[in-house]
Design a protein around this nucleic acid. Structure first.
Lengths: 165, 165
DNA sequence: GTAGGATCGTTCGAAATTGAACCAGCCGAA
DNA sequence: TTCGGCTGGTTCAATTTCGAACGATCCTAC
């Protein structure tokens, strides 16, 4: 049995190539953005994402766990990164008055400034690498796909734990 | 100046939402696949990717650096992961006769077996979450986009270092 | 009220990734 | 031939991530 036979047993070639390419492209996109951010603006992609979410929020502040959901990482990673941002003076913690467990993370003036420097640079990179390739129709189509994928992921995430019960 | 004003200065809302959703979806996809692999098959997504590339190669073997290019990571990460796979008995190293610097990594029988167990499970998950959402036309369209993105990344990666020279 | 269960955020140890430094072997040009 | 640069792989310290365990708080049902 040759290598070809082996692989053809479980690999539907065409459609799977799309998936492989998808993985490759997403990884390389993240790498280039990350490198650009670190070289030119001294922050990680995750840190940048946190700054963006904060800037987009009312009062430029968010709860820790909302932040964790928003960027897609473990809560402990958010704790870690907020500590870094806090050391850099880009964000700060507030006690939450409504909920004594809660912590608000808020963008500082320096955080806003840093984001205002980084954002145009990154957005132009994203445009150059990603967005310029798609016209309006394609964008709409892609957005539709993303919505389906997203709800697939939601369903799968809620179904799976229940399945074990 | 409200939060809205701030963000509208640098954020074109519609098209950027696509990018944000794209990031979110790709992260969640990777997480679910990773979790499935670790829970059911005892390997990481990176390790799985390595096994797949090896299985797809002639002689089920690859050079270290080709492996590093293929999955998108630093060379040192490949060294690390191949060590893990080797400890698990799923892959092994060979000296390369043509090039005395080179190392070949080859799938073992156990590696093939493990992959044969994992692959159907993962492929069905990928189908369920990702591929089933797209019909033939969309797949073709997506593939076209991926190709453009990919060549954008190539160009950007080769231009950038030259720009500093 | 008050117990039981869920939620919030942190801490901790283990694993993974990165980039820089490094050694060895290859190769092309003088 | 040999010298310089390039490539292939590893090592190392530093950073980041994850999941499990934890204490504290909230909330709902009794």
């Amino acid at each position: 049995m040759g290598a070809g036979d082996f692989e053809s047993r479980w690999l539907a070639p065409d459609v799977n190539a799309v998936w492989a390419r998808f993985l490759n492209v997403t990884h390389r996109l993240e790498h280039q953005i990350d490198r650009r951010l670190q070289d030119h603006h001294g922050i990680t992609h995750t840190q940048y994402e946190i700054l963006v979410r904060l800037a987009d929020s009312d009062d430029r502040a968010m709860r820790m766990s909302d932040l964790a959901d928003s960027i897609v990482t473990a809560k402990s990673a958010v704790t870690y990164q907020v500590n870094r941002l806090s050391e850099m003076g880009l964000a700060e913690r507030y006690k939450c008055d409504r909920d004594n467990r809660g912590i608000w993370v808020k963008l500082t003036a320096a955080g806003i400034e840093r984001l205002e420097q980084a954002a145009p640079c990154i957005l132009s990179l994203v445009r150059e690498l990603f967005l310029d390739a798609i016209n309006c129709d394609q964008a709409a189509e892609l957005d539709k796909l993303l919505e389906i994928w997203s709800s697939n992921l939601d369903r799968s995430a809620t179904e799976r734990p229940a399945e074990t019960a």
